[in-house]
Write a protein that binds this DNA or RNA. Structure first.
Lengths: 233, 233
DNA sequence: GCGATCAATAAATCCGACTTTTTGCCCCGT
DNA sequence: ACGGGGCAAAAAGTCGGATTTATTGATCGC
Protein backbone atom coordinates (compact mmCIF):
# COMPACT_ATOMS: atom_id res chain seq x y z
CA UNK A 1 0.00 0.00 0.00
CA UNK A 2 2.56 2.58 1.10
CA UNK A 3 6.32 2.66 0.73
CA UNK A 4 8.11 -0.08 2.63
CA UNK A 5 10.62 1.17 5.15
CA UNK A 6 13.46 0.08 2.91
CA UNK A 7 16.65 -0.23 4.90
CA UNK A 8 17.47 1.19 8.26
CA UNK A 9 17.25 4.78 7.16
CA UNK A 10 13.78 4.08 5.77
CA UNK A 11 12.57 3.12 9.20
CA UNK A 12 13.97 6.37 10.61
CA UNK A 13 12.12 8.33 7.92
CA UNK A 14 8.88 6.50 8.65
CA UNK A 15 8.84 7.92 12.16
CA UNK A 16 10.73 11.21 11.74
CA UNK A 17 8.91 12.31 8.59
CA UNK A 18 5.40 12.09 10.08
CA UNK A 19 6.65 13.79 13.24
CA UNK A 20 7.95 16.80 11.31
CA UNK A 21 4.98 17.11 8.95
CA UNK A 22 2.63 16.83 11.92
CA UNK A 23 4.28 19.93 13.37
CA UNK A 24 5.77 18.20 16.41
CA UNK A 25 8.94 20.15 15.73
CA UNK A 26 7.86 23.78 15.07
CA UNK A 27 9.63 25.71 12.27
CA UNK A 28 13.06 26.87 13.36
CA UNK A 29 13.59 23.96 15.73
CA UNK A 30 17.10 22.57 15.69
CA UNK A 31 17.80 18.84 15.66
CA UNK A 32 21.29 17.43 16.17
CA UNK A 33 22.16 14.38 14.11
CA UNK A 34 24.10 12.84 16.99
CA UNK A 35 21.15 13.06 19.32
CA UNK A 36 18.77 11.68 16.69
CA UNK A 37 21.18 8.84 15.91
CA UNK A 38 21.18 7.88 19.59
CA UNK A 39 17.42 8.18 19.86
CA UNK A 40 16.82 5.87 16.90
CA UNK A 41 19.72 3.61 17.84
CA UNK A 42 21.43 3.87 14.46
CA UNK A 43 24.82 5.11 13.31
CA UNK A 44 25.36 8.73 12.34
CA UNK A 45 25.80 7.79 8.67
CA UNK A 46 22.33 6.28 8.54
CA UNK A 47 20.89 9.33 10.21
CA UNK A 48 22.75 11.56 7.77
CA UNK A 49 21.15 9.72 4.85
CA UNK A 50 17.71 10.26 6.37
CA UNK A 51 18.49 13.95 6.88
CA UNK A 52 19.56 14.25 3.24
CA UNK A 53 16.22 12.88 2.08
CA UNK A 54 14.36 15.24 4.41
CA UNK A 55 16.51 18.03 3.04
CA UNK A 56 15.61 17.13 -0.56
CA UNK A 57 11.96 17.44 0.44
CA UNK A 58 12.72 20.93 1.78
CA UNK A 59 11.42 19.83 5.18
CA UNK A 60 14.71 20.68 6.91
CA UNK A 61 17.95 22.51 6.24
CA UNK A 62 21.31 21.23 7.44
CA UNK A 63 23.99 23.80 8.29
CA UNK A 64 27.37 23.40 9.90
CA UNK A 65 27.80 24.31 13.52
CA UNK A 66 24.04 24.99 13.70
CA UNK A 67 22.34 21.64 13.20
CA UNK A 68 19.32 20.48 11.27
CA UNK A 69 16.70 23.23 11.33
CA UNK A 70 13.05 22.60 10.46
CA UNK A 71 11.93 24.79 7.58
CA UNK A 72 8.61 26.70 7.61
CA UNK A 73 5.64 24.79 6.27
CA UNK A 74 5.34 27.13 3.27
CA UNK A 75 8.64 25.83 1.85
CA UNK A 76 7.86 22.12 1.98
CA UNK A 77 7.62 20.09 -1.24
CA UNK A 78 3.93 19.38 -0.76
CA UNK A 79 3.74 17.49 -4.06
CA UNK A 80 6.14 14.79 -2.89
CA UNK A 81 4.03 11.61 -2.60
CA UNK A 82 5.86 10.66 0.57
CA UNK A 83 5.10 14.02 2.19
CA UNK A 84 1.47 13.73 1.12
CA UNK A 85 1.17 10.28 2.69
CA UNK A 86 2.78 11.49 5.91
CA UNK A 87 0.41 14.44 6.15
CA UNK A 88 -2.62 12.30 5.31
CA UNK A 89 -1.65 9.97 8.14
CA UNK A 90 -1.22 12.84 10.59
CA UNK A 91 -3.34 15.33 12.43
CA UNK A 92 -4.13 17.80 9.66
CA UNK A 93 -5.55 15.09 7.45
CA UNK A 94 -8.80 17.04 6.89
CA UNK A 95 -6.95 20.15 5.78
CA UNK A 96 -4.77 18.11 3.43
CA UNK A 97 -7.80 16.33 2.01
CA UNK A 98 -9.44 19.66 1.25
CA UNK A 99 -6.35 21.03 -0.49
CA UNK A 100 -6.05 17.92 -2.62
CA UNK A 101 -9.74 17.97 -3.53
CA UNK A 102 -9.46 21.57 -4.72
CA UNK A 103 -6.43 20.52 -6.78
CA UNK A 104 -8.50 17.68 -8.26
CA UNK A 105 -11.28 20.10 -9.18
CA UNK A 106 -8.79 22.15 -11.19
CA UNK A 107 -6.93 19.31 -12.90
CA UNK A 108 -9.39 16.56 -13.71
CA UNK A 109 -11.78 18.47 -15.99
CA UNK A 110 -8.89 19.64 -18.16
CA UNK A 111 -7.44 16.13 -18.12
CA UNK A 112 -10.77 14.68 -19.23
CA UNK A 113 -10.91 17.14 -22.11
CA UNK A 114 -7.44 16.10 -23.23
CA UNK A 115 -8.32 12.44 -22.78
CA UNK A 116 -11.23 12.86 -25.20
CA UNK A 117 -8.69 13.96 -27.79
CA UNK A 118 -5.85 11.54 -27.11
CA UNK A 119 -7.28 8.38 -25.56
CA UNK A 120 -6.48 5.15 -27.39
CA UNK A 121 -9.12 2.53 -28.15
CA UNK A 122 -7.74 0.37 -25.35
CA UNK A 123 -8.00 3.24 -22.85
CA UNK A 124 -11.60 3.90 -23.93
CA UNK A 125 -12.39 0.25 -23.31
CA UNK A 126 -10.81 0.38 -19.85
CA UNK A 127 -12.78 3.50 -19.09
CA UNK A 128 -16.17 2.02 -19.98
CA UNK A 129 -15.25 -1.12 -18.09
CA UNK A 130 -14.52 0.94 -14.97
CA UNK A 131 -17.76 2.88 -15.34
CA UNK A 132 -19.74 -0.34 -15.68
CA UNK A 133 -17.98 -1.70 -12.60
CA UNK A 134 -19.04 1.40 -10.68
CA UNK A 135 -22.64 0.89 -11.76
CA UNK A 136 -22.52 -2.77 -10.76
CA UNK A 137 -21.30 -1.92 -7.26
CA UNK A 138 -23.40 1.23 -6.73
CA UNK A 139 -26.10 -0.44 -4.61
CA UNK A 140 -26.18 -2.72 -1.62
CA UNK A 141 -23.20 -1.53 0.45
CA UNK A 142 -20.48 -2.73 -1.93
CA UNK A 143 -18.35 0.28 -1.07
CA UNK A 144 -15.00 -1.44 -1.56
CA UNK A 145 -15.79 -2.71 -5.05
CA UNK A 146 -17.14 0.71 -5.99
CA UNK A 147 -14.01 2.42 -4.70
CA UNK A 148 -11.69 0.16 -6.69
CA UNK A 149 -13.43 0.98 -9.95
CA UNK A 150 -13.71 4.67 -9.09
CA UNK A 151 -9.96 4.90 -8.47
CA UNK A 152 -9.20 3.01 -11.69
CA UNK A 153 -11.55 5.29 -13.64
CA UNK A 154 -9.84 8.50 -12.61
CA UNK A 155 -6.41 6.96 -13.04
CA UNK A 156 -7.21 6.07 -16.65
CA UNK A 157 -8.54 9.56 -17.34
CA UNK A 158 -5.39 11.20 -16.01
CA UNK A 159 -3.17 8.74 -17.84
CA UNK A 160 -5.06 9.09 -21.13
CA UNK A 161 -4.67 12.88 -21.07
CA UNK A 162 -1.21 12.35 -22.54
CA UNK A 163 0.27 14.84 -20.08
CA UNK A 164 2.89 13.30 -17.80
CA UNK A 165 2.25 15.84 -15.04
CA UNK A 166 -1.42 14.88 -14.95
CA UNK A 167 -0.65 11.18 -15.19
CA UNK A 168 1.46 11.30 -12.04
CA UNK A 169 -1.51 12.57 -10.02
CA UNK A 170 -3.19 9.16 -10.29
CA UNK A 171 -1.83 7.94 -6.96
CA UNK A 172 -2.84 11.21 -5.33
CA UNK A 173 -6.44 11.04 -6.51
CA UNK A 174 -6.64 7.40 -5.48
CA UNK A 175 -5.49 8.40 -2.01
CA UNK A 176 -8.16 11.11 -1.79
CA UNK A 177 -10.94 8.77 -2.93
CA UNK A 178 -9.83 6.08 -0.50
CA UNK A 179 -9.64 8.60 2.32
CA UNK A 180 -13.10 9.91 1.59
CA UNK A 181 -14.59 6.42 1.59
CA UNK A 182 -12.89 5.15 4.71
CA UNK A 183 -12.76 8.05 7.14
CA UNK A 184 -15.46 10.52 6.25
CA UNK A 185 -19.09 10.35 5.32
CA UNK A 186 -20.28 7.82 2.75
CA UNK A 187 -21.75 5.17 4.94
CA UNK A 188 -24.55 4.92 2.42
CA UNK A 189 -24.39 3.94 -1.22
CA UNK A 190 -22.80 6.52 -3.52
CA UNK A 191 -24.84 9.27 -5.13
CA UNK A 192 -26.62 7.83 -8.19
CA UNK A 193 -26.13 11.10 -10.04
CA UNK A 194 -22.35 10.78 -9.65
CA UNK A 195 -22.44 7.25 -11.04
CA UNK A 196 -24.37 8.45 -14.08
CA UNK A 197 -21.88 11.27 -14.62
CA UNK A 198 -19.00 8.79 -14.73
CA UNK A 199 -20.79 6.71 -17.36
CA UNK A 200 -21.44 9.84 -19.40
CA UNK A 201 -17.81 10.94 -19.15
CA UNK A 202 -16.76 7.56 -20.53
CA UNK A 203 -19.20 8.10 -23.38
CA UNK A 204 -17.95 11.58 -24.15
CA UNK A 205 -14.31 10.44 -24.18
CA UNK A 206 -15.16 7.54 -26.43
CA UNK A 207 -16.91 9.92 -28.85
CA UNK A 208 -14.06 12.40 -28.72
CA UNK A 209 -16.30 15.16 -27.38
CA UNK A 210 -13.72 17.14 -25.38
CA UNK A 211 -16.06 19.95 -24.38
CA UNK A 212 -18.68 17.58 -22.95
CA UNK A 213 -16.09 15.41 -21.17
CA UNK A 214 -14.65 18.51 -19.50
CA UNK A 215 -18.04 19.86 -18.39
CA UNK A 216 -19.24 16.52 -17.04
CA UNK A 217 -16.02 15.98 -15.11
CA UNK A 218 -16.37 19.47 -13.71
CA UNK A 219 -19.76 18.46 -12.36
CA UNK A 220 -18.17 15.42 -10.70
CA UNK A 221 -15.50 17.51 -8.99
CA UNK A 222 -18.06 20.12 -7.94
CA UNK A 223 -19.89 17.30 -6.20
CA UNK A 224 -16.69 16.27 -4.46
CA UNK A 225 -16.18 19.86 -3.28
CA UNK A 226 -19.73 19.98 -1.92
CA UNK A 227 -19.17 16.78 0.05
CA UNK A 228 -16.43 18.56 1.97
CA UNK A 229 -18.44 21.79 2.33
CA UNK A 230 -15.79 23.72 0.48
CA UNK A 231 -18.08 25.61 -1.91
CA UNK A 232 -19.65 28.69 -0.37
CA UNK A 233 -23.47 28.89 -0.79
CA UNK B 1 18.85 31.43 -8.98
CA UNK B 2 18.97 27.66 -8.71
CA UNK B 3 19.94 25.46 -5.80
CA UNK B 4 23.53 25.83 -4.72
CA UNK B 5 25.55 22.64 -4.89
CA UNK B 6 25.63 22.43 -1.10
CA UNK B 7 28.40 20.14 0.02
CA UNK B 8 30.21 17.47 -1.92
CA UNK B 9 27.11 15.36 -2.45
CA UNK B 10 25.37 18.42 -3.87
CA UNK B 11 27.99 18.70 -6.57
CA UNK B 12 27.52 15.03 -7.42
CA UNK B 13 23.76 15.58 -7.73
CA UNK B 14 24.27 18.63 -9.93
CA UNK B 15 25.94 16.47 -12.58
CA UNK B 16 24.31 13.08 -12.01
CA UNK B 17 20.74 14.37 -11.76
CA UNK B 18 20.72 16.14 -15.13
CA UNK B 19 22.43 13.14 -16.71
CA UNK B 20 19.69 10.77 -15.55
CA UNK B 21 16.77 13.08 -16.35
CA UNK B 22 18.26 13.72 -19.79
CA UNK B 23 18.06 10.01 -20.48
CA UNK B 24 21.79 9.41 -20.69
CA UNK B 25 21.25 6.30 -18.60
CA UNK B 26 18.22 4.48 -20.12
CA UNK B 27 15.68 2.92 -17.75
CA UNK B 28 16.95 -0.32 -16.30
CA UNK B 29 20.59 0.74 -16.44
CA UNK B 30 22.62 -0.35 -13.44
CA UNK B 31 25.06 1.99 -11.72
CA UNK B 32 27.46 0.80 -9.03
CA UNK B 33 28.08 3.17 -6.17
CA UNK B 34 31.75 2.23 -5.96
CA UNK B 35 32.32 3.04 -9.62
CA UNK B 36 30.44 6.32 -9.32
CA UNK B 37 32.38 7.23 -6.17
CA UNK B 38 35.62 6.74 -8.08
CA UNK B 39 34.38 8.68 -11.09
CA UNK B 40 33.40 11.68 -8.97
CA UNK B 41 36.40 11.26 -6.67
CA UNK B 42 34.37 11.14 -3.48
CA UNK B 43 33.91 8.59 -0.73
CA UNK B 44 31.22 5.94 -0.89
CA UNK B 45 29.31 7.59 1.97
CA UNK B 46 28.95 10.80 -0.01
CA UNK B 47 27.80 8.85 -3.05
CA UNK B 48 25.34 6.93 -0.91
CA UNK B 49 23.79 10.19 0.30
CA UNK B 50 23.40 11.34 -3.31
CA UNK B 51 21.85 8.00 -4.26
CA UNK B 52 19.40 8.33 -1.35
CA UNK B 53 18.23 11.70 -2.65
CA UNK B 54 17.87 10.32 -6.18
CA UNK B 55 15.95 7.42 -4.68
CA UNK B 56 13.58 9.77 -2.83
CA UNK B 57 12.84 11.40 -6.20
CA UNK B 58 12.01 7.95 -7.60
CA UNK B 59 14.67 8.45 -10.25
CA UNK B 60 16.56 5.30 -9.21
CA UNK B 61 16.09 2.23 -7.03
CA UNK B 62 18.89 0.80 -4.92
CA UNK B 63 18.86 -2.98 -4.38
CA UNK B 64 21.46 -5.22 -2.83
CA UNK B 65 23.64 -7.41 -4.98
CA UNK B 66 22.22 -5.74 -8.11
CA UNK B 67 23.19 -2.07 -7.85
CA UNK B 68 21.42 1.24 -8.44
CA UNK B 69 18.91 0.81 -11.27
CA UNK B 70 17.40 3.73 -13.17
CA UNK B 71 13.62 3.73 -12.94
CA UNK B 72 11.37 4.29 -15.97
CA UNK B 73 10.48 7.89 -16.68
CA UNK B 74 6.81 7.29 -15.82
CA UNK B 75 7.70 6.75 -12.15
CA UNK B 76 9.75 9.90 -11.59
CA UNK B 77 8.55 12.56 -9.15
CA UNK B 78 8.00 15.12 -11.90
CA UNK B 79 6.69 17.69 -9.40
CA UNK B 80 9.98 17.88 -7.53
CA UNK B 81 11.34 21.38 -8.22
CA UNK B 82 14.85 19.98 -8.52
CA UNK B 83 13.76 17.44 -11.14
CA UNK B 84 11.87 20.17 -13.03
CA UNK B 85 14.97 22.36 -13.10
CA UNK B 86 17.13 19.49 -14.30
CA UNK B 87 14.71 18.66 -17.10
CA UNK B 88 14.32 22.30 -18.10
CA UNK B 89 18.09 22.55 -18.40
CA UNK B 90 18.28 19.38 -20.50
CA UNK B 91 17.38 18.22 -23.96
CA UNK B 92 13.63 17.75 -23.60
CA UNK B 93 13.16 21.30 -22.43
CA UNK B 94 10.44 21.99 -25.05
CA UNK B 95 8.42 18.94 -24.01
CA UNK B 96 8.72 19.90 -20.34
CA UNK B 97 7.71 23.49 -21.09
CA UNK B 98 4.57 22.27 -22.87
CA UNK B 99 3.61 19.96 -20.01
CA UNK B 100 4.02 22.75 -17.50
CA UNK B 101 2.04 25.20 -19.60
CA UNK B 102 -0.88 22.77 -19.81
CA UNK B 103 -0.67 22.40 -16.04
CA UNK B 104 -0.77 26.19 -15.70
CA UNK B 105 -3.86 26.35 -17.91
CA UNK B 106 -5.64 23.99 -15.53
CA UNK B 107 -4.53 25.53 -12.24
CA UNK B 108 -4.34 29.29 -12.64
CA UNK B 109 -7.97 30.03 -13.56
CA UNK B 110 -9.22 28.14 -10.52
CA UNK B 111 -6.58 29.84 -8.38
CA UNK B 112 -7.69 33.26 -9.63
CA UNK B 113 -11.29 32.45 -8.74
CA UNK B 114 -10.26 31.49 -5.23
CA UNK B 115 -8.04 34.57 -4.97
CA UNK B 116 -11.07 36.76 -5.70
CA UNK B 117 -12.70 35.23 -2.62
CA UNK B 118 -9.78 35.12 -0.23
CA UNK B 119 -7.28 37.82 -1.21
CA UNK B 120 -6.37 40.29 1.53
CA UNK B 121 -6.28 44.03 0.93
CA UNK B 122 -2.49 43.90 0.87
CA UNK B 123 -2.49 41.17 -1.77
CA UNK B 124 -4.92 43.17 -3.90
CA UNK B 125 -2.57 46.13 -3.68
CA UNK B 126 0.40 43.99 -4.72
CA UNK B 127 -1.62 42.64 -7.63
CA UNK B 128 -2.56 46.02 -9.03
CA UNK B 129 1.00 47.18 -8.54
CA UNK B 130 2.27 44.23 -10.58
CA UNK B 131 -0.29 44.88 -13.30
CA UNK B 132 0.70 48.53 -13.49
CA UNK B 133 4.35 47.49 -13.69
CA UNK B 134 3.51 45.24 -16.62
CA UNK B 135 1.77 48.11 -18.40
CA UNK B 136 4.72 50.40 -17.75
CA UNK B 137 7.16 47.92 -19.31
CA UNK B 138 4.92 46.71 -22.14
CA UNK B 139 6.49 48.88 -24.87
CA UNK B 140 10.01 49.64 -26.02
CA UNK B 141 11.80 46.33 -25.52
CA UNK B 142 11.76 46.33 -21.74
CA UNK B 143 11.33 42.57 -21.69
CA UNK B 144 13.18 42.00 -18.43
CA UNK B 145 11.16 44.52 -16.46
CA UNK B 146 7.96 43.12 -17.92
CA UNK B 147 8.96 39.56 -17.01
CA UNK B 148 9.70 40.47 -13.39
CA UNK B 149 6.26 41.97 -12.89
CA UNK B 150 4.57 39.15 -14.80
CA UNK B 151 6.20 36.53 -12.55
CA UNK B 152 5.28 38.49 -9.43
CA UNK B 153 1.67 38.85 -10.63
CA UNK B 154 1.10 35.14 -11.07
CA UNK B 155 2.91 34.36 -7.84
CA UNK B 156 0.58 36.64 -5.91
CA UNK B 157 -2.49 35.08 -7.57
CA UNK B 158 -1.38 31.57 -6.64
CA UNK B 159 -0.47 32.64 -3.13
CA UNK B 160 -3.71 34.56 -2.58
CA UNK B 161 -5.79 31.52 -3.53
CA UNK B 162 -5.32 30.30 0.02
CA UNK B 163 -4.50 26.79 -1.22
CA UNK B 164 -1.04 25.66 -0.23
CA UNK B 165 -0.79 23.28 -3.21
CA UNK B 166 -1.42 26.16 -5.60
CA UNK B 167 0.88 28.50 -3.73
CA UNK B 168 3.81 26.13 -4.17
CA UNK B 169 3.48 26.34 -7.96
CA UNK B 170 4.73 29.93 -7.92
CA UNK B 171 8.33 28.96 -8.60
CA UNK B 172 7.20 26.64 -11.36
CA UNK B 173 5.17 29.29 -13.18
CA UNK B 174 8.03 31.75 -12.81
CA UNK B 175 10.34 29.23 -14.43
CA UNK B 176 7.94 28.76 -17.35
CA UNK B 177 7.54 32.49 -17.90
CA UNK B 178 11.29 33.05 -17.74
CA UNK B 179 11.89 30.18 -20.15
CA UNK B 180 9.37 31.52 -22.61
CA UNK B 181 10.92 34.98 -22.56
CA UNK B 182 14.53 33.89 -22.85
CA UNK B 183 14.59 30.89 -25.17
CA UNK B 184 11.53 30.97 -27.36
CA UNK B 185 9.65 33.55 -29.33
CA UNK B 186 8.90 36.94 -27.80
CA UNK B 187 11.54 39.08 -29.39
CA UNK B 188 8.90 41.75 -29.78
CA UNK B 189 6.93 43.55 -27.12
CA UNK B 190 4.28 41.43 -25.36
CA UNK B 191 0.76 41.16 -26.73
CA UNK B 192 -1.21 44.27 -25.65
CA UNK B 193 -4.33 42.14 -25.20
CA UNK B 194 -2.53 39.98 -22.63
CA UNK B 195 -1.46 43.08 -20.71
CA UNK B 196 -5.03 44.32 -20.62
CA UNK B 197 -6.24 40.94 -19.39
CA UNK B 198 -3.83 41.07 -16.46
CA UNK B 199 -5.10 44.50 -15.47
CA UNK B 200 -8.68 43.24 -15.68
CA UNK B 201 -7.87 40.18 -13.55
CA UNK B 202 -6.48 42.49 -10.88
CA UNK B 203 -9.72 44.47 -11.05
CA UNK B 204 -11.91 41.39 -10.78
CA UNK B 205 -9.97 40.06 -7.79
CA UNK B 206 -10.15 43.43 -6.08
CA UNK B 207 -13.92 43.50 -6.62
CA UNK B 208 -14.32 39.92 -5.42
CA UNK B 209 -15.80 38.78 -8.74
CA UNK B 210 -14.64 35.18 -8.75
CA UNK B 211 -16.40 34.17 -11.95
CA UNK B 212 -14.89 37.01 -13.96
CA UNK B 213 -11.40 36.49 -12.49
CA UNK B 214 -11.54 32.83 -13.48
CA UNK B 215 -12.72 33.49 -17.02
CA UNK B 216 -10.19 36.25 -17.67
CA UNK B 217 -7.34 34.12 -16.36
CA UNK B 218 -8.55 31.30 -18.59
CA UNK B 219 -8.15 33.66 -21.53
CA UNK B 220 -4.59 34.40 -20.45
CA UNK B 221 -3.65 30.72 -20.24
CA UNK B 222 -5.37 29.99 -23.57
CA UNK B 223 -3.09 32.61 -25.06
CA UNK B 224 -0.09 30.90 -23.50
CA UNK B 225 -1.19 27.58 -25.00
CA UNK B 226 -1.54 29.18 -28.42
CA UNK B 227 1.99 30.57 -28.23
CA UNK B 228 3.26 27.00 -28.00
CA UNK B 229 0.88 25.72 -30.70
CA UNK B 230 -0.69 23.31 -28.23
CA UNK B 231 -4.34 24.05 -28.98
CA UNK B 232 -5.68 22.23 -32.01
CA UNK B 233 -7.80 24.39 -34.39
C1' DG C 1 17.43 -34.98 -17.45
C1' DC C 2 15.32 -31.75 -14.41
C1' DG C 3 14.62 -29.44 -10.09
C1' DA C 4 15.82 -27.89 -5.55
C1' DT C 5 19.23 -26.75 -2.14
C1' DC C 6 23.46 -24.68 -0.74
C1' DA C 7 27.82 -22.25 -1.17
C1' DA C 8 30.49 -18.50 -3.30
C1' DT C 9 30.47 -13.84 -4.55
C1' DA C 10 29.38 -9.10 -5.62
C1' DA C 11 27.27 -5.22 -4.23
C1' DA C 12 24.85 -2.33 -1.00
C1' DT C 13 24.71 -1.36 3.95
C1' DC C 14 26.47 -0.13 8.34
C1' DC C 15 29.84 1.61 11.55
C1' DG C 16 33.34 4.40 14.28
C1' DA C 17 37.23 7.60 13.76
C1' DC C 18 38.97 11.73 11.67
C1' DT C 19 38.48 16.56 9.31
C1' DT C 20 36.54 20.98 8.32
C1' DT C 21 33.97 24.91 9.13
C1' DT C 22 31.18 27.93 11.55
C1' DT C 23 29.93 30.62 15.49
C1' DG C 24 30.06 32.33 20.01
C1' DC C 25 32.95 34.18 23.41
C1' DC C 26 36.72 36.42 25.44
C1' DC C 27 40.48 39.41 25.51
C1' DC C 28 42.91 43.26 24.06
C1' DG C 29 43.32 47.79 22.14
C1' DT C 30 41.45 52.24 21.44
C1' DA D 1 32.68 51.59 27.39
C1' DC D 2 32.76 50.00 22.80
C1' DG D 3 34.48 47.52 18.87
C1' DG D 4 37.42 44.30 16.37
C1' DG D 5 40.23 40.26 16.03
C1' DG D 6 41.55 35.80 17.36
C1' DC D 7 40.85 31.41 19.93
C1' DA D 8 38.29 27.31 21.12
C1' DA D 9 34.31 24.30 21.10
C1' DA D 10 30.56 22.12 18.75
C1' DA D 11 28.35 20.29 15.09
C1' DA D 12 28.05 18.70 10.37
C1' DG D 13 30.92 16.68 6.83
C1' DT D 14 34.13 13.08 5.11
C1' DC D 15 36.42 8.77 4.79
C1' DG D 16 37.67 3.69 4.26
C1' DG D 17 37.18 -0.80 6.45
C1' DA D 18 33.93 -4.43 8.28
C1' DT D 19 29.36 -6.53 7.75
C1' DT D 20 25.09 -8.16 5.73
C1' DT D 21 22.33 -9.83 2.16
C1' DA D 22 20.58 -11.32 -2.05
C1' DT D 23 21.69 -13.31 -6.48
C1' DT D 24 23.91 -16.66 -9.21
C1' DG D 25 25.52 -20.93 -10.50
C1' DA D 26 27.03 -25.36 -9.46
C1' DT D 27 26.30 -29.66 -7.27
C1' DC D 28 23.53 -33.22 -5.42
C1' DG D 29 19.36 -35.88 -5.26
C1' DC D 30 15.20 -37.64 -7.44
Amino acid sequence: MSTAGRGLHGHVLDTLGPAITAGEYPPGSVLRTDELAQRFDVSRSVMREAVRVLESMHLVESRRRVGVTVRPKAEWNVYDPQVIRWRLAGADRPRQLRSLTVLRSAIEPVAAGLAARHATAEQCAELTECALGMVAHSRGHQLHGYLVHDMAFHRVILSASGNEMFARLGDLVAEVLAGRTHHDVMFEDPDPAAVTLHVQVAEAVREGDAERAEQLTREITVGALHELDILAP
